[in-house]
Computed example of a mutant assay.
Amino acid sequence: MGNLVVTSSSSANIEVNDCNAQKGIALLDYAKLKGIKREEIAAIGDNLNDESMIREAGTGVAMGNAIPMIKNLVQVVTKTNNEDGVAYILNHFITNKKQK
């Protein structure tokens, strides 16, 4: 039982996984395969099951409706799910990249 991680994606559930089955580990493994540097990665999340991914990314983004703990981890807060926050922040990143 010592190799488990307990997280949640809402106030009404828990997620129990092996400690190696986390979003942050998967994100970095994928980036390594693709030759993407950590500082080139943005991770977007809203709840505890996104924590490892946000911590591992170069830029952490919280949805506007994210829980306070996630908002405290990130560098950027975008709009809520209902306001198309993912599309909004991706457009922001793409526009800023084009201007550089």
Rank of each mutant, 00 (worst) to 15 (best):
E15W: 06
E15L: 14
V16S: 15
V16T: 09
V16A: 11
C19R: 13
N20Y: 02
A21H: 09
A21C: 15
Q22K: 05
G24M: 05
G24E: 07
G24W: 04
I25N: 00
A26V: 01
A26I: 07
A26C: 01
L27W: 02
L27S: 00
L27K: 01
L27C: 08
L27D: 00
D29F: 07
A31P: 02
L33R: 15
K34N: 12
G35M: 02
G35F: 03
I36W: 03
I36M: 03
K37N: 09
E39A: 08
E39Q: 10
E40F: 05
E40I: 12
I41F: 06
A43K: 00
I44Q: 07
I44N: 02
G45T: 01
D46V: 07
D46F: 04
N47K: 07
N47P: 08
L48Y: 14
M53A: 06
M53R: 07
R55W: 09
R55I: 13
G60D: 06
A62I: 03
N65Q: 02
I67C: 15
I67N: 15
I67R: 15
M69Q: 13
K71C: 02
K71P: 14
L73E: 03
L73V: 09
V74F: 01
V74S: 09
T78Q: 01
T78E: 01
T80A: 01
T80P: 05
N81H: 13
N81L: 10
G85N: 06
A87E: 09
Y88I: 07
I89R: 03
I89C: 08
L90G: 07
N91T: 13
N91E: 14
N91M: 10
H92R: 11
H92L: 14
H92M: 15
F93L: 14
